[in-house]
Design a protein around this nucleic acid. Structure first.
Lengths: 395, 395
DNA sequence: CGGACTTTCTCCAACAACCGAACTAAGTTT
DNA sequence: AAACTTAGTTCGGTTGTTGGAGAAAGTCCG
């Protein structure tokens, strides 16, 4: 009877040991102030001091990190402080939405330098929309950054299915004229820096995970806005699935009042047809209420309108229903809800309620259920992560 | 405009490059006859000849592989044939079920040497049941294997939630007296080889994935027997989730005829209360039909009983409903259904039908939906994989 | 003030896992 | 017999890592 056999070590989640050890994460640690020196990085990343030294060297060589004098002593030699060259490197990001786009510039830490929203008419087609946005982003960059700043990459989020490997859009539901469009190809022809494209919910997941839950292995991030989507983190990495459509829960069927609403996809009772912002707007208009868009609905709820609040509760229960299956199946450590609808407390409460009611206790006992911790910039933050990972890694 | 930027290489799935390159997989390649020599292994694993040579050397040194003369020439030097020492190394496996347990011995290739079923009374408690099964397995090993055979590890599957990291059982639903039991600790005290424990659906997934879909990155395997569970493969590896409860879809709510059946968990309308073997037995007995157990139900369906078949179809639709959410959310490349109920064609057809109806076309267009390709031994095959991965790796 | 710690960081040897090229070995084909 | 083929090893090199010695630059305490 050998004591060694008593210990069944858990198979380290793949990449878990490396987490915090890739270039993007090191930059973030430095930029957030979590690490100011090589020694700090060694402690936080789990790598040996020698390795950190080496890596820092190559990052400095690439202009992605720099030394800025000595810091305060902690009882020994003073650390040589590190800094991310915020003023010389810029990343562009676009988070395209249904009616609005969020554009921004980010520094190498993945932090937003400047961002703003602008209205877009998605039906103008990809060339027009993306062309304009690209111009806006480069304009933003030139305006905001120092004269020595260099654009190193652009990340784009699309509110529809994107094949991340090719950068193409695949049969989107509310983007006429965009089907099959090669976003990466189009943009790469208009700029000389790397371009990465992904689904908006994926970018949201990436942004929220890195900035709020970097330590979690498995998490689900739901974007409940005009449409409903989700981004999935598995093993610390974005899970895109076999066809890259993972997280697309918008057409899952939910329990509804009897004439199940018809969805744009042709099916009835889809989550999107019941719980999306578009569905709420539609339902309230049918009742003769004066709502034009989702913000109007939110205002009604804030004002305590019974019908609007009831609809929000129903929407929350429907989202919760689907998430209950997701939580049981996937057993994430966190479920976070973002998008405009996440600001609606009754909706969030309903989601929580259904999750606790319909999930295994084992799955919910340590489950975090929360509102997205990051604000309107979460999408471009995610885009920044994607770009930094491509630009900084491989070391 | 730089051509390099046009190429957006897909982030290699983690481990995909290594797949087929770990020790367990090399043994399997040799044992299945897919590879007979070092050169074959190099071709199939993607590793360089020198690396393969090296690895084979260490495997031979560990007694996990051996050389057996030269093979036929293919126009050049004759290969030095390799063989897995089937007669000197044995692995024990137990796949515990509700009323029956499947036990077996496997060779280093992960193939079953001998297996058989035996009845168990799970309510006798873990000490009694596991003690008996351990005795049976060691007996099987001594009987079947050559005199030089050495047991190198034991894998155990449990029909309930298992915390794989500790080897403990956590609040199982139909296993009175097993809650919190430390299976690994118990068995390690009675044998001197490594013991690994996991949920039965996870083992099924592991077995089916390795033997039927080793090339797939993402797949879902459903066990529809007396209970309903699922095993999840993500990134080529078993996904256990944050608490190790991933795949436990038995208490997801499904659409039901009006008085939603009460589940053992206290909720109503659970998948398990509608579509599990136990539920079918119960429903048919309520109608006064003479069924004692799931095989009786299967017989009724085979005989064309209307009620039984209708119930099976309903069960299939319910399973399909949940799987539709799973497929949309997870976007696997394959969904395979095993367990006794998978032999029921009407049920399988209903699952397929609902999946194609309720999933994104993008998610189903290349999705494989099939019956489990491996038979009753799939669980112990999975257990074998788990043990081999522990015994052979790290190289 | 000076010696004894501390902390920070670098240098170097070593290691693990891998690869490619050159080479040996042992065939077959023409 | 020469020319090719296939199989396998040896060896040096690459990459990414670690650990330890030790240099650099402090603080602290008697």
């Amino acid at each position: 009877m050998d004591a060694r056999n008593l210990v069944v070590t858990d198979d380290e989640a793949p990449g878990a040991a490396v987490r915090g050890a890739n270039a993007g994460e090191m930059l973030r640690l430095v930029a957030t102030g979590a690490a100011a020196s090589r020694a700090d990085l060694a402690r936080l990343s789990g790598l040996s001091p020698s390795t950190v030294s080496q890596r820092v060297e190559t990052l400095i060589g690439r202009g992605l990190l720099r030394e800025v004098g000595a810091g305060r002593s902690r009882g020994g030699r003073r650390p040589r402080q590190l800094e991310v060259p915020v003023d010389t490197v810029v990343i562009g990001a676009v988070d395209l939405g249904a009616r609005h786009a969020r554009i921004g510039t980010l520094d190498l830490a993945g932090r937003v330098v400047e961002s703003r929203s602008l209205e877009v008419r998605i039906e103008d087609g990809p060339e027009s929309v993306l062309g304009t946005l690209l111009t806006e982003v480069t304009g933003l960059m030139r305006g905001a950054s120092g004269p020595g700043a260099v654009l190193r990459g652009i990340g784009v989020g699309i509110p529809g299915p994107v094949q991340h490997s090719t950068g193409r859009i695949v049969s989107p539901s509310r983007m006429p004229g965009w089907n099959g469009f090669d976003v990466v190809g189009f943009l790469a022809g208009r700029t000389d820096v790397p371009v990465v494209v992904d689904n908006d919910a994926n970018l949201m997941a990436l942004g929220e995970h890195r900035w709020q839950h970097p330590e979690l292995d498995h998490a689900v991030y739901v974007k409940a806005g005009t449409g409903i989507g989700a981004g999935v983190i598995s093993g610390g990495r974005l899970h895109r699935g076999g066809q890259g459509s993972a997280g697309d829960i918008s057409h899952c069927r939910v329990f509804t009042a009897d004439p199940a609403p018809l969805c744009s996809c042709g099916n009835t009772g889809c989550l999107e047809a019941v719980a999306s912002g578009a569905a709420l707007v539609g339902a309230l208009r049918e009742r003769g209420l004066p709502v034009q868009s989702l913000p109007d609905v939110m205002r009604l709820i804030d004002d305590g309108d019974r019908h609007a609040t009831a609809l929000a509760r129903t929407a929350g229960r429907s989202i919760g229903e689907i998430l209950a299956v997701v939580v049981n199946f996937f057993n994430p450590q966190a479920v976070a809800i973002g998008g405009l609808l996440a600001d609606c407390e009754p909706l969030l409460a309903s989601v929580r309620s259904v999750l606790y009611e319909r999930c295994l206790p084992l799955a919910t006992q340590t489950l975090l259920i929360e509102r997205l911790g990051t604000g309107a910039d979460v999408g471009i933050l995610g885009a920044g992560q994607l770009v930094i990972d491509r630009v900084a890694d491989p070391l």
